[in-house]
């Protein structure tokens, strides 16, 4: 890595730092970080109590980012997220009270409990990276990274995200149960929330933005693009998926692969990078339903049938 603006700290340090809190989940941590570097948003779909919130929190802490959390419920209104203008008698005028989206890392817990209107307000903000309330447009801070969680089991009185909207998330990952060793470690160890509070940032926000810039410029050769395109085409040709990957999904895949290459410390994208992020990026866009594991298995099958160019 001979890029002049490249910071001395590598993102790998971040992964290591988070891994001290979120035990035995390095692949997921890496994917989450890659998602952040690629400038996308992350959807974590798994059972409660497996450390979704902890991961989001740890990510924010190690990167020194401002962190806010919203617990979604069915009466959460868009204004509760975006903020409202409230009349102040003393000023004899409206003053804007920013909602929780005005932060750098937003954890939207159990997003499927929010009403569709609220969901779409959040998705719009995620896409636009700005919020328009009362006719006034306000930029969100940079970087802006949304981690939404979804509980796939408890479906009663919920509004699962429409499949078409899942496209707004760069990746969907599941956390899964920790290994025996990790679980014992969790049981034995001190409360990780305490450790979390004691964490110091490994990367400055400036460095993070630099890394994002490096990611965007990461070299992807023609051969690599051809391979990536073949993967995308494969999803379109197959009858097993309701939707093939869109062009936007292809772009997302490339962005994620670039981020993975940065995490690996390379100066160009390899097919292995594409392969590493492909299940997380593609699985939720193929219309295979909410079962993350099954969808990712289908995505891996595609990987196995397309030759590396």
């Amino acid at each position: 890595m001979d890029d002049p603006i490249l910071p001395k700290t590598t993102p790998t340090n971040v992964v290591d730092a988070i891994s001290t809190i979120v035990l035995d989940k390095e692949p997921q941590v890496r994917l989450a970080l890659a998602c952040l570097l690629a400038g996308g948003h992350l959807l974590i779909e798994d059972l409660p109590g497996l450390g979704k919130t902890l991961l989001a929190h740890a990510l924010a802490r190690t990167l020194g980012l401002e962190f806010k959390r919203v617990q979604c419920t069915n009466d959460l209104l868009p204004t509760d997220l975006l903020g409202v203008s409230i009349f102040h008698r003393e000023e004899n005028g409206f003053r804007f009270h920013p909602g929780p989206v005005f932060t750098q890392v937003l954890l939207a817990d159990e997003i499927n409990r929010a009403s569709p209107k609220t969901q779409s307000a959040l998705l719009e903000v995620m896409e636009e990276r700005q919020s328009t309330v009362d006719g006034e447009t306000r930029q969100l801070p940079r970087p802006f990274f949304v981690i939404a969680t979804q509980n796939p089991v408890d479906q009663l009185s919920t509004h699962p995200l429409p499949e078409a909207q899942l496209d707004r998330f760069l990746m969907r990952i599941g956390l899964g149960y920790p290994s025996v060793a990790a679980e014992l470690d969790i049981l034995r160890g001190e409360d990780r929330r305490v450790r979390l509070a004691a964490m110091t940032p490994v990367l400055s926000p400036k460095e993070l933005l630099d890394f994002q810039a490096v990611t965007a410029r990461m070299h992807a050769s023609t051969a690599l693009l051809a391979y990536l395109h073949a993967l995308v085409l494969r999803t379109r040709d197959s009858d097993r998926f309701r939707y093939g990957l869109s062009s936007r999904a292809a772009q997302a895949l490339l962005a994620a692969a670039r981020a993975w290459a940065v995490l690996r410390g390379g100066d160009h994208v390899l097919p292995a990078d594409v392969q590493a992020v492909f299940p997380a990026v593609a699985a939720h866009r193929l219309g295979l339903g909410a079962d993350t594991a099954k969808a990712e298995a289908a995505a891996r099958e595609i990987l196995a049938t397309v030759a590396v160019a």
Partner: peptide, 9 residues
């Protein structure tokens, strides 16, 4: 050899 394998792998 697996054609679907990245050379780096």
């Amino acid at each position: 050899l697996d054609p679907a394998e990245c050379p780096s792998r």
